[in-house]
């Protein structure tokens, strides 16, 4: 895709007057904010505040929930992903996702990473080998698994499995990487490895991450959005949100008065 200079200056993900309904429930209320290219945006807030639902709007995974309905617009690279005629399959290729629980397929490590490229018709062995290697390197897993690529991905430790899922997600070379509490099922050591990885990844991808852990948001993100009851209470640079929050509710939440 050709990108002009001005395209690159635009925020990569623009959310405009976004409402999400599950049946009659209004889960997200008039969200408006932009995520700039090549940065990490963290979404924080108490359980049920809508941050995960929002994340799933960005690759239209909410389409699978019956009764889910979206109003407003989400622009990724200037294209409204909810416009009629949008190819959802192509969208999901541009917007990768890593889930809360590590969910490698019951296949070999190699096949897990090659899954995405194979979907799009890559058959050439050398190309696949190269993609698998570079993706595993990108996910800081290559050195640990290079000698056992044909062993099951499910045989790895939890932290390794999650890095395998990251490798699998970046193997399709997305532009945006969504992460839904990617470390909540992991031990502290694995968590810090993944956090390190996320900081590296933003040079290549725009990362949107949902986290329950405020320290994590503070450590790894450039921008932070605070959600409450389906509303975006406050959005700004992470340092601003954590040091001089404008809204009283943000301050209460990050200082641990509720949540």
């Amino acid at each position: 895709m050709d990108k002009t200079e001005s395209d690159l200056d635009l925020p990569q993900v623009r959310t405009q007057n976004l409402d999400l309904y599950y049946g009659a429930d209004r889960v997200l209320r008039s969200l408006n904010f932009d995520i700039p290219r090549g940065c990490v945006a963290a979404f924080i807030g108490p359980s049920g505040c809508g941050k995960s639902s929002y994340l799933r709007c960005l690759n239209r995974m909410n389409d699978f929930i019956s009764g889910a309905r979206v109003e407003g617009r989400v622009l990724i690279d200037g294209e409204d992903i909810y416009a009629s005629g949008v190819d959802v399959i192509a969208l999901r290729r541009r917007v990768g996702m890593v889930f809360q629980k590590p969910n490698p397929f019951p296949m070999s490590i190699y096949e897990n990473v090659a899954y995405g490229p194979r979907l799009f018709g890559v058959k050439d062995r050398e190309t696949l080998d190269e993609t698998v290697r570079s993706s595993l390197e990108g996910a800081a897993l290559w050195n640990e698994v290079k000698d056992k690529l044909n062993t099951p991905g499910t045989g790895l430790s939890g932290g390794q499995q999650q890095r395998l899922c990251i490798a699998r997600a970046i193997a399709t070379e997305p532009e945006v990487l969504l992460m839904d509490e990617p470390t909540s099922a992991l031990d502290p050591l694995s968590t810090s490895r993944i956090e390190e990885l996320i900081r590296d990844l933003k040079s290549r991808f725009t990362v949107a991450i949902v986290t329950h852990n405020m320290q994590q948001a503070a450590r790894i993100s450039d921008y932070t959005a605070f959600f409450l009851l389906g509303e975006l209470v406050e959005y700004g640079t992470t340092s601003q949100i954590f040091t001089v929050p404008v809204d009283k509710r943000t301050e209460d939440y990050i200082t641990g008065r509720f949540g």
């Binding site: 290729r93 990768g96 996702m97 969910n103 019951p106 899954y115 699998r168």
Partner: peptide
């Protein structure tokens, strides 16, 4: 077959039939 597998497959841009053939059936 865990829903996690299907989610992962869809999130990678698989169609329903690709997901069934490559993930659901083998599992």
């Amino acid at each position: 077959v865990p829903q996690d597998y299907r989610d992962a497959s869809y999130a990678l841009g698989a169609t329903k039939w690709q997901t069934i053939r490559k993930v659901v059936l083998p599992s």
